[in-house]
Nucleic acid binder design. Sequence first.
DNA 1: GCATCGCCTTGACCTGGATCAACCAACGTC
DNA 2: GACGTTGGTTGATCCAGGTCAAGGCGATGC
Lengths: 241, 241
Amino acid sequence: MAVRQDIHNSEIPALCRSCEARHRGVCGALTPEQLVELSRHTTKRKVEPGTVLVSDSDTIDSYANVLAGVVKLVKTLPDGRQQIVGLQFAPDFIGRPFKRESSITAEAATAVRVCAFPKTSLDRMIDQAPELGHRLHLQALDELDEARDWMLTLGRKTAAERVASFLHLIARHGDPEAESEGEISFDLPLTRADIADFLGLTIETVSRQLTKLRKDGLIAVENNRHVTVFGIDRLERRANI
Amino acid sequence: MAVRQDIHNSEIPALCRSCEARHRGVCGALTPEQLVELSRHTTKRKVEPGTVLVSDSDTIDSYANVLAGVVKLVKTLPDGRQQIVGLQFAPDFIGRPFKRESSITAEAATAVRVCAFPKTSLDRMIDQAPELGHRLHLQALDELDEARDWMLTLGRKTAAERVASFLHLIARHGDPEAESEGEISFDLPLTRADIADFLGLTIETVSRQLTKLRKDGLIAVENNRHVTVFGIDRLERRANI
DNA sequence: GCATCGCCTTGACCTGGATCAACCAACGTC
DNA sequence: GACGTTGGTTGATCCAGGTCAAGGCGATGC
C-alpha cells in the first residue's frame, strides 16, 4: 500500500507534463510530490492581449508562471503617464514574494498562457523546499540587473539608441546565440504604444526611429510587427551597448 | 574545556559589537559563532568620497556592508555618460551574490565606513544559514522595487518632478515618519553632478530646479548641501508621487 | 460596396531641457 | 594677498523629441 502510494505520488501531474516552467522555471525546484500538491490548486489559463493579470490597486493573493507569450509590468502616474518597468517571458515567474501588495500592474502584452496558483500554497512550499526560494532569489537578482540596465537606457540614451536597444533586447531574447553578422528575424511582442511606454518616448518618436533604421538598411519591417535585423552587431553599435 | 570553547565562541566579536548591520542588516541572520567565523576574514575601513569600492571592470571577490555614509551604484556608457542606478545607505549590503561579475561600479558618494569580507566566506555561510539567504533575497526584492520606481521617474517625469522626487527620497530616508506638514532638514549626500547622474539630467537643470523650489518657498538651501523642506506634502505634490 | 475602427506613419511646429559660456564663493597653498 | 581649483549658479541659445494634425491601411461589420 505504501509502495503504491509512492508510485502514485511520484507521477508528474498532467498539468505540468509539457510545461516549460518545470524545467527552466521555478517549478524545477519541486519534487514530483510537491508538484502534485501545488497542481491541486493550480489553474492554467489562456488570456487575450490587454488582460490585467495583477492589478496595482488590490492586494496580491496569487502567483503565476508565464508559459507562453509576453507579460508587461506597468507603473502608472496619477495623471496617466505610464512606464513599462519589465517584460516577462516564458518561463518567468510573476509575483512579489513576501509582500501583500505591489505598485505594479501585470498585463498581457500578447496572447498569453499562464499557470496561476494561490500565494499561500507557494509560500508554504518555500519553507519546505529551500531550492525553490533559491530559484526565486536568482530570478529577483536577474530582474534587478535588467532593471538597472534599463535605467541607464532611460536616463542617458538618445531616442535612436533606445529603439536600437529595444530591438536588440528582443532579438537577443529570441536567439541568444545568433551570429552577430547574420540575419535574424522575429515578431515584436509589443505595439508601438507599448514600445513607447517601455522606452520613455512617444509613439511618434518610436515610429520615426524605426523608419530611420529601415531607411539606413539595418532592419526590414513587414506588417508592422515582423522585423528582420541585418547584423546584430550593427544594431549594437547604434544602441551603444 | 568544551564548555569554555562554547562560551568563548558565543561572544560577539569586538568588530561587530556596535555594528548596525548586526541588527537591521544581513549579519542579523548569523549566530555569534558564525559572526566570529566571518569576522576572522573581515576588514572595517573608512574611505573618502570618490573611492571606488567595486569596479565593473574586474571580477568581484568580496562583499561589504555599508556602516555609515552613502554609496552610489553607477553604470557608464562607452562614451562616458553615466547613470546612478542605486544608492546604498547603512546597513545595506553591497555585492552581487551568485555571480562572478557585475556591470556596476560602487563608489563612495560621501565619507563611508564599510565592513568588507571575502565572497567565499559569505557564500559558504549562505549554505549553513538559510536565514542569511533569505535576508539577501529580501534586500534584492526591495532594491528591485526601488529600481522600478526610479524607472518611472527616469522614463516619464519632468525635470521639476525628478528633482522633487529626489529630495523626497532623501528626506523620507532620513525620517520615514516625519510629519507631512512639518519642517524637515538634512544634508544632501550627493553633489549636483551626482544628483544629475541620478536623475538623468544635467547639473545646470538640477541647479535651476532647486532654485525654482527655493523661490517658490518649498525649500531653503544653506552652504549648497544643507536643505530644509517646508512641508513634505507640498514636495510630494511637486514630485507627482 | 463602403463606413468605422485600431494601429501606424508622416509632416509642421513648439518647447523643455541640453549646451555653451560667464561668473561667483569657498577653500587651499604658495 | 594674489592665484588656482572645485562646486555651484545664471543667462543666452539651440535642438531632440514632444505635440498637434492629417492621412494610410488592413480588419471587421453592415
